[in-house]
Design a protein around this nucleic acid. Structure first.
Lengths: 366, 366
DNA sequence: CGATATTGTCCGTTGAACGGATAAAATGCG
DNA sequence: CGCATTTTATCCGTTCAACGGACAATATCG
């Protein structure tokens, strides 16, 4: 017997099978397009007749359209189906502590225009003003003002459950900042906000297909901070307050150095780019003091270049980061045991330098 | 559009609604019995006719039976329905490092006989022999030999994905021990093995109902070791190798004392009962040395009694455990953000002693 | 040109939910 | 006691969508 959530179940009704199969058809077309009705029937194990009816509905609703005819070795040529992305666009905003970038994409994420970037104003209200103006110009320039479905904003911090406000973004020094409603009224478009680690994980989930696409994985994005997204059983882990998966502030050492979040010895404070740089310069970071000048101008790429140029201190700092990455990943593996871990960020360009330290650290703890 | 796992979807067929509704009926009866057909129809939002047909099938299959008639203020009396637990029993085995207990229950977990306990033999083969004999006697004594559905074994360690072997149980010093098949052949019954933390979480999930039953929670069982079970979205977190949710070996301090698992500074090595006792006696534990005699005879209850009796060193050791519990729970909260955390183990009887230290530690890091 | 293969549609059948009517069983009131 | 009322449970015709197979359209090959 399988457990059913008795507080939130839905009775199966006469049209439930159709709804389920309709979703399967949409997902299959999106993932494997172009695809004919017969292909769908084979993939789904359904009758061709049933598929035709479902596809007809989707075409009538404008979600799918018939494109070119395909090639067949013999027999009638298949009529290919596509997700209808014409005349429907989306604005993607990547809000980072230093710069914010804006771009226009279609509904499956293919870029249409941009990105254009601007320095992030630290005042939220100012930020919303500048961003709204940028979006207005972008849509106007590309004649998409009438057909934009909405705006998606990616934020380096915690977002509340409803996706309305930024609860806490330490690097921006934002606390409980309303973002969705002000931006929606300023632009007249629907707005979605998402944490950066979670957004990366969602993007990975929706873009990866084929037999190798895992249903349980962790996405790690190392930059100024540490963004983490966890997918379990094909669903993004959000938890009660939408802060689930925040491994960035899991401890490496509870007696370690202070972190911007207020706690001590968080993973982020060992592996972020700033942490790596401060390790190199021997300048411990203080959460509430300004960032030392040599860290603000010097980038992690510069550090990697020095390491490759023979600077042993640079190589050591990078390798230490590799070790701490591995120690934290070991905790992630113990905690969620994912099928795969995706690592992104500038530091991955120095993979050859960190690989062994990272693997040793994982082996030590798993 | 909702994401569907394209590697493991199931086409909705003509009988899919019935299967779904059948499961809803079974779950509702199990959770809220006794219940009439009319009650079910109201709870499900379905026609009474549809419910009658579903219930008829379940009765024919012997999963449900009609019991006594209920009372009604007016009108025809309802015919109550129950999950059929008659003539169907299960053997529950709790394998612990020192002692193993065996009991007989019905299929919804109500105890029928036992528990009886015996000292756990450290040799797996010997253990299986002794356990099989105990089970044979237990079934024989209660005349349940013919109608036992199977055996469930709870193990303080990692179990492989298929539930066949114990991968690693540090306190037992078992590594990759086959358990299911030998026990099944020795008893002639189907065997299920589960990790102790996961089993506690599953038990909690199946026993808690009503509007307050959370779909995301963490169960923490503090004893000789630290068992953790994580439920996300109503499903137990298992991960790729069935070691998901093993927060016991997440680090508190990667430079901390060695743990039985081979790593350093694991949460378990700060908060287990043995850790608390060794803190009191000022006797650091070594993973591969025998447990010091004062720790083997002295129990955590004794320590709590001393603390209550005014022994400040005892109170300090317990409060330190409370603090470390809080630090680890903060990591759990950051990682999975559960709606609720269940804490079990002898240490909870000293809740008044640990509460403030625990809450302070959580507040520090979340 | 005919055999064959493939795609897509059409249509009668079937299983299960839907909607309402009816029977059964109990209570309350005149 | 008889009758209205209420609640439970069943019955039956309807409807929706999957099922299963037939068929037309379209292409290739010998």
């Amino acid at each position: 017997m399988r457990r059913i959530d008795l507080n939130a179940f839905r009775l199966a009704q006469r049209d439930t099978p159709r709804e389920i199969n309709r979703r399967i058809v949409l997902n299959l077309i999106r993932a494997r397009q172009p695809l004919s009705r017969a292909d769908l029937a084979r993939l789904m194990g359904a009758r061709r007749g049933a598929v035709s009816v479902l596809v007809k509905d989707l075409i009538d609703e404008g979600l799918v359209f018939e494109g070119a005819k395909g090639e067949a070795v013999r027999g009638r040529k298949p009529q290919f189906l596509y997700i209808d992305t014409r005349r429907r666009s989306v604005v993607a905003v990547d809000l980072r502590p230093t710069r914010t970038s804006v771009m226009l994409t279609d509904v499956v994420g293919e870029p249409l225009a941009g990105p254009s970037t601007f320095a992030t104003p630290s005042d939220p209200q100012k930020f919303i003003e500048v961003l709204a103006e940028r979006i207005r110009v972008l849509l106007d320039e590309h004649g998409k003002t009438g057909c934009c479905e909405g705006i998606g904003v990616v934020v380096p911090g915690m977002v509340d459950r409803t996706g309305s406000r930024v609860l806490f973004a330490p690097r921006l020094d934002w606390k409980d900042v309303p973002l969705r409603e002000p931006l929606a009224t300023a632009t007249g478009l629907p707005v979605q906000i998402e944490n950066s680690g979670k957004a990366c994980a969602l993007a990975q989930m929706w873009s990866a297909h084929g037999p190798a696409a895992p249903a349980d994985f962790v996405f790690l994005s190392v930059s100024d901070g540490l963004g983490v997204g966890v997918v379990v059983g094909g669903r993004l882990l959000r938890g009660r307050h939408n802060i689930g998966g925040e491994f960035g502030h899991v401890p490496i050492n509870v007696d370690g150095p202070p972190c911007a979040c207020g706690a001590n010895g968080c993973w982020e404070s060992y592996v972020s780019n700033l942490a790596t740089l401060s390790r190199y310069f021997g300048r411990p970071l203080s959460p509430h003091k300004p960032i030392p000048p040599e860290l603000a101008t010097f980038t992690i790429q510069d550090l990697i270049a020095r390491a490759r140029g023979g600077d042993r201190k640079a190589a050591g700092a990078i390798q230490a980061t590799g070790r701490y990455l591995g120690l934290g990943l070991a905790a992630v593996i113990n905690a969620v045991d994912p099928s795969r871990i995706y690592l992104s960020g500038e530091i991955t360009t120095a993979w050859d330098l960190i690989e062994s330290a990272l693997n040793d650290a994982i082996a030590e703890r798993v």
